[in-house]
């Protein structure tokens, strides 16, 4: 833990690239010339400022107004201070939705995708090479499917007469209508199916970098497979685990299409995670200001994870 903290807080090492083209007499570069060299950054900065930073700032501002899609507040929204947030705290759906978001993220990403991804990657190192490559392609296949197609496929799989219940019927069980009786379980499993490939790819790359000498040494010392995993492999790939956890958390926090197509947040609000709630409030109930407040909460949660992730990933280190 201590080393992780040290690694995470070490300031990014200074760029090793040379400052100037070498060998050309090293004339000092004027301030103006230095500024001019940054010109190629401008198109990217303009696009990102208007379309990325703009909406974020707007999100904070909009959450303090009563903006609406229709009615008198559509054209003239006014400042209502913290009213949207006060409403948020009183709204019984909001805590439910927050809890469902946490449940969805923890169960489908942090636990399932992460553990399954690492498990498959570890198993692959011992299995037949061709088989491992085939299974890898299948798992990744679910992931590269366009999200709307993946959502339809999962809808079919979990629907009342779907494949899952057919399998259960084959072993003599009557399956429930998963999408109505257990909507959260269905979307969690669907997201597990769709997202595991990411963790698998990350861990495959990381395991590839574990020096075989170390595991060999542990093996000669008589460490069993489980011990080698816990005391050798996992400590070596610890940074990767952190990075992976942050990334899949952020991806799962913003899952919309899968849930929207499979259950539309229902029945009732039983699978309404925050992105679905923000969408419903803003576009179905035309309450843009309130929807924006929910989006802002989601954005803040995301920002916290982003910062943790950035500290772990350290960009300027080459």
């Amino acid at each position: 833990m201590v080393t992780a903290d040290v690694i995470a807080t070490t300031p990014p090492s200074s760029d090793r690239r040379r400052q100037e083209p070498q060998g050309s007499g090293r004339r000092p570069v004027s301030r103006l010339a230095k500024a001019l060299r940054m010109i190629p950054l401008i198109p990217a900065i303009i696009i990102m400022t208007i379309f990325l930073a703009g909406p974020i700032i707007w999100s904070f501002y909009g959450s303090f107004t009563n903006a609406a899609l229709t009615g008198p507040n559509a054209s003239h929204s006014s400042w209502i201070g913290l009213d949207n947030y006060a409403k948020l705290l009183q709204d019984p759906v909001f805590p439910l939705s927050l809890w469902l978001t946490v449940l969805f993220t923890l169960a489908s990403a942090v636990i399932s995708q992460n553990v399954l991804g690492l498990g498959i990657a570890l198993t692959m190192t011992r299995a037949n090479k061709r088989l491992a490559s085939l299974i890898g392609s299948i798992v990744v296949g679910a992931w590269i499917l366009p999200e709307i197609v993946a959502a339809f496929v999962c809808y079919a799989y979990f629907s009342k007469n779907g494949t899952l219940n057919q399998i259960l019927a084959a072993v003599g069980m009557t399956g429930p209508n998963w999408l109505y009786s257990f909507p959260m379980l269905a979307v969690i499993l669907a997201n597990l199916w769709r997202g595991t490939a990411f963790s698998l790819l990350v861990y495959q790359a990381a395991l590839n970098d574990v020096p075989p000498e170390i595991t060999e040494a542990a093996m000669i010392d008589g460490a069993s497979g489980a011990k080698r995993l816990v005391y050798v492999t996992i400590p070596i790939i610890r940074t990767t685990i952190t990075t992976n956890l942050m990334l899949i958390t952020l991806q799962t926090l913003s899952v919309f299409t899968l849930i929207y197509v499979m259950t539309a947040g229902g029945p009732g609000n039983d699978s309404t995670t925050l992105p679905i709630l923000a969408y419903k409030e803003a576009f179905r109930f035309s309450n843009i200001g309130y929807g924006t407040a929910i989006a802002t909460v989601l954005l803040l949660i995301g920002a916290v994870f982003s910062i943790v992730y950035i500290r772990a990933a350290r960009p300027a280190k080459d």
Binding site: M48, F51, L52, G54, P55, I56, W58, S59, G62, A67, M246, L247, L250, L253, S254, V255, F256, L274, P275, A278, Y279, A282, F283, I288, G291, T292, I294, A295, T296, L298, L299, G302, A303, F305, S306, I307, Y309, I310, A313, P315, A316
Partner: peptide, 22 residues
């Protein structure tokens, strides 16, 4: 680069409501 990295991990779904207003 820090800002860019922060941008890579933003939940885009979260800003769709404000993007619509914008």
């Amino acid at each position: 680069m820090y800002t860019v990295l922060f941008g890579t991990s933003l939940p885009i779904t979260a800003i769709m409501v404000p993007v619509y207003s914008l």
